[in-house]
Design a protein around this nucleic acid. Sequence first.
DNA 1: CTGAAAGCGCTTACAG
DNA 2: CTGAAAGCGCTTACAG
Lengths: 366, 366
Amino acid sequence: MSKDDNVSSPRLTKTFDTSVFKAKAKIQDVARLAEVSLGTVSAVLNGKGRVSTATRDRVQAAIVQLNYRPDLYASNLARRNTQILGVIVSNLENPFFAETANAVEIEAERHGFQISLMATNFSPVRHRSSVERMLGARIAGLAVLTSEHDEQSRKLILASGIPSVFLDYGSPTESSATIRVDSGGGMRLAVEHLLALGHRDFLFVRNSHKGAGPPLLSHRLRDEGFAAAVQDCNVPGVHAHAIDTEGPGADAGEKAIAQALGSIRFTAAVAVTDTVAMGMYRGLQARGLSIPKDVSVVGFDNTYFCRFLHPPLTTVDIPRTELSRAVLAALLRKGESCEELSSTLATSLIVRQSTGPPNRQSKSMA
Amino acid sequence: MSKDDNVSSPRLTKTFDTSVFKAKAKIQDVARLAEVSLGTVSAVLNGKGRVSTATRDRVQAAIVQLNYRPDLYASNLARRNTQILGVIVSNLENPFFAETANAVEIEAERHGFQISLMATNFSPVRHRSSVERMLGARIAGLAVLTSEHDEQSRKLILASGIPSVFLDYGSPTESSATIRVDSGGGMRLAVEHLLALGHRDFLFVRNSHKGAGPPLLSHRLRDEGFAAAVQDCNVPGVHAHAIDTEGPGADAGEKAIAQALGSIRFTAAVAVTDTVAMGMYRGLQARGLSIPKDVSVVGFDNTYFCRFLHPPLTTVDIPRTELSRAVLAALLRKGESCEELSSTLATSLIVRQSTGPPNRQSKSMA
DNA sequence: CTGAAAGCGCTTACAG
DNA sequence: CTGAAAGCGCTTACAG
């Protein structure tokens, strides 16, 4: 490069005024300004190869001066891979998913990965298109942390061969791990807690989403867990009813109570999620019933708002941190097999003030 | 193309078994299988140009057979633009942001755009890096719908020249619009409602996030709106105190009540957000105080859970649908100037059961 | 430690 | 209506 080159071109001179300079600087511009080759700029950008300190400084100065930012599409195309992990959840408005997505993002950041987040809103169509978009985006790994699942989508993911992890769905394959939550165990703890308090008449409330296809997998697991716990308890005189209502969680919970009161005999109500439980609170309290005096209520998920309900909600906790760690481990996969990376997370019962001994005179009794 | 070409190569034959075929099909493969050129495949992919029905069908069949999905990075690089809108919010765990992001996504989908969503968690550092990532991703437009703001980041966005929209921050420029929410008006409605009920002693509760830098802009607007409403009301004997606590909304609200009770005289409490109000519920109810008998409570945002609290929360509504429409209009910008695309959204008061006449004997009075 | 060249998988004029 | 060619902005061997 001749010495004449350090006379800046008119174009480069303009870059000092970023408010006027619109055209994005590219790696060429940086190389020219720093008087090095493309490869060298790329090396300092990616921290690879040996570059002398002096050169590095010059390049960095040029980057700052030009306000240069590598083009995501060009670099990912050239690199043939990304540092992006895909995360698909059902519904960001549900605190459980928001909290989980957040935990995964923080965990991913620790490993130098970014997150691309999509929500299906429980729609099978959006579930499918989310998967397709993720696959087209050449993500480094994909976590499907949804309540609903789709065998077709799973096939696409497995066929792509990228590392993937499913929540409560499928079995480990060569490229895919499955993290399970011990919903059954959690339900068992809830039922045992209520039995110990003296309850014998149970209501289980589950909700479904319109247009969401088959019942949500996570809900089915909880449903079955509840039924099994009641069945196995070996306590005489136990009765349980299940009710299924449609709509967003809280609305469904309220509706379920309206339906159940007067027709079903219960002193304890178990909800499939905290949000459903919140709606049940409303249904009960709007009718002058007291929790836990008239009805004990148990939720599921231990979302942040449980502590702030009145009374604070007894619920089953899903360990967020362990979950996000397990997801990252499965996606980043350092040597272990998917078999080894699959696991079942233990749940625990958080007892707060929404559960207490039954009141046989309760107005809730049919 | 010679007729011999319809003898599939061994590679193409394997593609029938997607569970074994790992290498991603590329546009070349589709062209070869359909016996057309690259350009033709691209044309049917993007719905551009005229392609005969027969050819189109052949191409489509090949796409299905090969399970072909265009590479996002290659196509965006070649296209020189994306169909992706960036959305930055503060915190997905806050229902207001989750609901807003959702509304924007649905609106964007209607216009054929996808959303890339990032959360700052109120951290100035993450705010900045989110902006940089978005800019590197060549998004078609950027919506900054955060509570916190950063002048440096705004400069970067303006310098990039991409269409952008800010919530409650800055003034319209050539490339950037500003959507405002009439927080002051909402606060005025809340105060007038409480005054009409007979309240004279007010508490205002605001929260801040640790490590979040300066007070959140939206909170300041609400704060000032409250102060102005009280100041301007022309009712004698009105007193108002403001309290600022740190932490996530609900925790902060609970803490604020603990601090205020016994030291501040109030019969009505106004929260900067619904989440803070939820914490105040807990603070009051845990101490045996009744809402609204002892204290009336008003929230802000009208998030979905307000209806399910006990009692249902009176709150200020921010029109989500109008907000998401305004955001999309500003980003997609069909001819209008940013000046025209900037607006102030009216708020309204949703009166529920958390507000009522004051009780002069209340235990909440210091 | 540095530079020139090939290639990532598409899209888009352009010429037919 | 279709094909061949250039180019998007990077990264990565490769040769020096």
